[in-house]
């Protein structure tokens, strides 16, 4: 159509069209600008700086010098880094199970029409809302070997008290306990939302066919929840790998070790210690980028694996 029209006639609508597009673009960009600036200043620029710093010997004070890959080499030959990596891996693997399976069970129970379910939903969600440091300090009392309530109960049953916070063997288990306790409520709410999206017709159709409750759970609930489960697994894993506040609030000592014999030391507390206690900003930045690569790889693997078991409707 435009090919046939004379040039003089088509020029005006075209320009008007263009200027309207430009105006639209300006409007849109103007509205996005605060967000873009925020992301730029508080996210992308620090990100770029930290990437640069990871190749320098930057300390808290003074000018940084470029030192190539030294920081990365140092991390890969640092036993403390490996200890933190191992702790993080062990912590994440256990927590991934301990904070999702009970969450799903709770969600299924609290999705039923039982008396007081709103109350219980709120109860299980409270740990999520509560301040991490506050409740972790409470846990320090609960888990105390001499006067902690948990050990009081253990003693009642005639067992030896467990040195939750005072032995190198139990340190990480305590972190798993407290972290999972906080995370279960959150995962439960996500599962609940997913459960409410499962159409009741499926259960209605399945029960005349003779499916038991357990079979319904296994063949309807679990597959229908798979996107939710996937989301929960991805976010929980990332949160596990980045865990900071629980081990620090639970185990930080005056010597800045995390738990007895550094048994609660995971990768982000190590990063923090290197940056703010040791003052090695460059090295800490390199640790951060190593962690980034690890999380990226694990998340990509999760996405790849998810094709086998996650069903999007």
């Amino acid at each position: 159509m435009t090919k046939q029209a004379p040039a003089a006639l088509s020029a005006t609508p075209a320009r008007r069209h263009l200027s309207r597009r430009v105006r639209l673009w300006i409007d849109a960009f103007g509205m996005l600008l605060p967000t873009i600036l925020g992301v730029l200043i508080f996210f992308l620029v620090p990100l770029a700086i930290s990437f640069y710093l990871s190749f320098t010997d930057a300390r808290l004070f003074g000018e940084p010098n470029l030192i190539g890959f030294n920081n990365y080499q140092r991390a890969l030959s640092d036993p403390t880094f490996y200890r933190a990596m191992w702790n993080t891996a062990a912590f994440s693997m256990v927590t991934l199970v301990v904070s999702t399976v009970p969450a799903l069970a709770l969600a299924v129970i609290l999705n039923e029409r039982i008396a007081g379910r709103t109350f219980f939903r709120a109860v299980f969600f409270i740990p999520v809302v509560a301040s991490v440091v506050g409740v972790t300090l409470l846990w320090r009392y609960l888990l105390n070997i001499d006067f902690g309530f948990v050990n009081y109960v253990i003693r009642l049953f005639g067992f030896e008290p467990i040195p939750w916070l005072t032995s190198p063997e139990w340190g990480l288990i305590s972190v798993i306990l407290v972290f999972s306790w906080k995370t279960i409520g959150y995962n439960m709410v996500i599962f609940l939302a997913g459960l409410q999206g499962v159409p009741p017709q499926l259960y209605e159709a399945a029960s005349p066919d003779g499916a038991s409750r357990w079979q319904q759970f296994l063949f309807i609930t679990v597959p229908m929840l798979s996107p939710t489960t996937f989301f929960v697994l991805v976010t929980t894993l990332i949160n596990c790998l980045q865990v900071f506040d629980v081990p620090v609030a639970l185990g930080l000592t005056r010597s800045n070790t995390i738990g007895p014999a550094d048994s609660m030391l995971t990768i982000v507390p190590l990063l923090w210690r290197e940056a703010f206690i040791g003052g090695r900003m460059g090295y800490a930045s390199a640790l951060a980028w190593l962690l980034f690569v690890i999380i990226l790889l694990l998340t990509l693997i999760q996405f790849r694996l998810s094709r086998r078991w996650v069903h999007y409707e």
Binding site: F42, F43, P46, L47, I49, S50, L53, P227, F230, F231, V234, T235, I238, N239, L241, Q242, F244, V268, L271, W272, A275, F276, M281, A284, S285, L287, A288, W289, L291, F292, I295, L296, T299, F303
Partner: peptide
């Protein structure tokens, strides 16, 4: 979902420089 995951991921890096604000 991918974006949420990526954003959460990038937030790690700010642990290094976030405290430095």
């Amino acid at each position: 979902l991918s974006w949420i995951a990526l954003m959460a991921l990038l937030a790690t890096l700010l642990a290094a420089c976030g405290g430095g604000q």
